[in-house]
Amino acid sequence: MTSDLWFALMGVALIALAAFTFFRQVHLLRRILAFNIMGSGVFLVMVGMAQHQRETDPVPQALVLTGIVVAVSATALALIIFRRFYSVSGQVELDEYQIEEPTQNEDHASDTMKDNINSLQDALQSDDEAPAKPSASKGDQ
């Protein structure tokens, strides 16, 4: 048992746990978190297994370095898309039957696809951020 192998095993455990969470949770932010941790597990397996009973290997380390930077940009992009999704739909999860529920500022009768397109256009044109809209109907606290 070397520490390289040990950390690779930890990486395996992280991947498996993150996969479980990824399928189990519906909250998109939690899924993004799980996805990040899964990526870290992959990095650990890559570096750990390349160095197990061998010398320090700069090639997988360089690959992982690239991977870390790409992972953060992917996370940032995912978060931006999540925010747009949230501001348009008011949802934090991607459950199909929940999207059927009309958002408060939308036409109840139109089908889901049209709903989403309309609200997206609205959000792109309006000056305010869309999540402020539900509050307008609710009034003060």
């Binding site: 498996a16 996969a19 397996v45």
Partner: peptide, 16 residues
Amino acid sequence: PVISCVGLFVLLLGAI
């Protein structure tokens, strides 16, 4: 989730 979790775990252990 359970199958994917356990399956991934076993496969990766095998790979190692």
